[in-house]
Design a protein around this nucleic acid. Structure first.
Lengths: 401, 401
DNA sequence: CCTGGGTACGTGAACGTTCACGGTATAATA
DNA sequence: TATTATACCGTGAACGTTCACGTACCCAGG
């Protein structure tokens, strides 16, 4: 526990060595015009003194804002808007330094190449994207890599490309959790079906592997009797679900690993099998909420877009700022959402205070129940220890943006 | 989409109104010595122009570091260390401005009053605490409130005190999720038991309420036949668990709502009922890991200490910085941990990059597999668009702290 | 000797905000 | 009217860092 000494700055190093701060600056930044020997001495004493750059001062000086382009679909608004919220929230911490530009394509995979090229042309410093069609996007990402523009994939991945990192709920785990849940829900065993979009998609294949592994591991007579590709098409999904239900009159469980679960649910309803089939779905959208409430859907695996957005932005920003390279795959632990915690999830977005503190009134009033009635401005209270000098400016809300 | 204009600062407002920046400053900070009319005009144009304070400049100027004391138990290290990690991580974002001091008591409820008074005496600006004995801590929190030192409770709460906020996994939801899981695991119905520490504790009572509500809601013949207080005592828990198992030879499920689940697990083993009783526990500690792996524990409700720590610190910091008052209860969505996602949880702590980026080599190398061999300093590459001018200084690592 | 070019380093001005101080009005008092 | 008090407002220095520029020096060629 060294006593919290004053942080050592650039001029402490300068003084210790008897050089000027300019020299220290040159040394610390690998800039030309400095004697290699001096540079070494500066770096040494910097390390010895435990120099940590004052980020505030750095940001203040370098007036260049980092620009990050975020391109996501609009389609399932509840999901992608949450993702945007997560990004916005994380970006708010780095206020003036960072600038986020949102671009939207109508739905996953549509027009994303154009958007990407547009972002590249606009000269941004980094890109966050949810690749709907990874192969189509591959040359774009390669071009970005050539331009030294880091790209982070979120939710979906573009494997084997030069992206900086990918943020997602680990698909194997997602499938595995679904499989374990279904197995536990069926202690007497039974047949289950697996619905997905395309098995060609790496994510979906991974989910299937996880699902399989999990079902076999618990191993109490639960069998995967059908693996169905719905191609994210309403009618295809509906028809194939009907077919599966017909072919397996004793089907006990279904996991829909793509977000497009409504056709399957409708098929189960149509066949009058609601309640006889335990259903696990993926993610959360408005139409799913009542079905969870009334128990038709036992659980849904939520991929936590807000958290993914936060991680994506933080990783990208850190990299742009000081070159810290994130792990290639940032894994988010998915949520198991059931009737019991559905409301908690929907009411979320905490950490957003409503009321503001008035120094004159004292914040104790809030707990006691007394509401601050009078403004009481222009009376300077004793500056209590609890409040720092960087005192509350007047109430300002973020514009809706 | 307004073109990303230059952020409007304090002197923009001053120029627009023909006043000095000093006046604007006074208006924005509710300081005395300004005409109420001018203040209003300043505030209006500030809002009109969309003024956002430059945090970097503010932090740079106000050289006062905010000190926050964090006092947590040592006992279940995996849990409390994670909480500390979350706090540390969140604090790292506010580097030079914020300073966190960790204090520890041996276990929950032991010596926390002394620690609290010690923290108060040391003159910190805010406190984060996990109250083990809320009533004993009540006068302390009151004293802190009188001194205008905000206190945030984490994990456990001290209700009806003057704390600024409490961060926790909503206990009702935690109990409710456990109840729903057990109900789903027992589609044929059956008797279940509820173990806790003290029902006098608000948290535990809430969990019971949630558990009850959930079990009754699913309503397929699952009944809570025993509610047991183990008083967080090994022997008591063990003996009572044995008694419950004897009294209910057909017991199908158990939920242990306190972290002290080992005695109950041992009792089930002793009676040879492993596999016949579905068990849901709370939180995660080393001894629990193998039991989840081998399926003795079907699921555990993880209260996510890292996230709680992050939220607690952010809320406290925000409040100290600009008076933003957080919601009184910040609810964290608990995780359902099972065999399938256990590894993902254990391997976590992402966002901590290992390798560093060398501007000379270019980050593309990392993806291609080629490792940067030569240092190659003092050769200035074309400053690619991807990297900001606040370029990477030489590699420095945080001291182990 | 003066010029020219290079290297190594010092100097000072910014960045946006805060804050103590000093100044200017107007009002109150002698 | 001169003097002090008060309310309001302008001024300038700092915070730590970055960057363009200035300066001292050394060595070559004219």
């Amino acid at each position: 526990m060294p006593p919290p000494a004053r942080p050592v700055g650039i001029k402490d190093i300068a003084r210790a060595l008897g050089v000027s701060i300019g020299t220290v600056d040159r040394a610390l930044h690998d800039k030309p015009g400095i004697n290699p020997d001096t540079r070494r001495r500066v770096l040494d004493t910097a390390a010895a003194l435990g120099y940590r750059p004052n980020l505030a001062a750095r940001h203040l000086k370098s007036r260049t804002t980092i620009r990050i382009s975020v391109q996501l679909p609009q389609e399932i608004a509840l999901f992608w808007d949450s993702l945007r919220d997560g990004i916005r929230e994380a970006a708010a911490l780095f206020e003036p330094t960072l600038q986020v530009e949102f671009r939207s394509n109508p739905r996953l995979g549509e027009g994303e190449v154009e958007l990407f090229e547009q972002a590249l042309a606009s000269g941004v410093n980094g890109i966050i994207v949810a690749p709907g069609d990874p192969v189509a996007l591959e040359p774009c990402i390669r071009q970005a890599a050539r331009d030294n523009i880091p790209v982070i994939c979120v939710v979906t991945d573009a494997p084997n490309t030069e992206r900086l990192a990918s943020v997602s709920a680990d698909p194997f785990t997602v499938g595995s959790v679904a499989g374990e849940l279904l197995s536990r829900f069926l202690p007497n065993g039974g047949d289950v079906a697996f619905f997905t979009g395309w098995l060609g998609t790496e994510d979906h294949a991974e989910k299937l592997r996880g699902f399989d592994a999990s079902v076999n591991a618990v191993g109490q007579g639960v069998h995967v009797v059908a693996v169905v590709e719905a191609h994210d098409d309403e009618r295809t999904g509906y028809r194939r679900a009907l077919a599966v239900l017909d072919a397996h009159p004793d089907l006990k469980g279904i996991y829909v690993s793509t977000v497009n679960s409504l056709p399957v649910l409708r098929a189960v309803e149509r066949k009058g099998r609601t309640g006889q089939v335990a259903i696990v779905t993926t993610d959360l959208f408005p139409a799913l909420v009542p079905r969870i409430r009334q128990g038709q859907v036992a659980a849904t695996i939520y991929q936590r877009p807000v958290t993914q957005g936060r991680h994506a932005l933080q990783a990208l920003y850190q990299f742009l700022l000081d070159g810290t390279k994130p792990p290639t795959r940032i894994k988010v632990v998915p949520h198991v959402v059931m009737r019991s915690n559905l409301d908690l999830l929907l009411e979320r977005r905490p950490l957003e205070g409503e009321t503001r503190w008035r120094p004159a009134g004292g914040w104790r009033l809030a707990a006691g129940g007394g509401l601050a009635g009078q403004e009481g401005h222009a009376q300077k209270p004793r500056p209590a220890r609890g409040l720092p000098p960087g005192a509350p400016p007047s109430a300002r809300r973020l514009p809706p943006d």
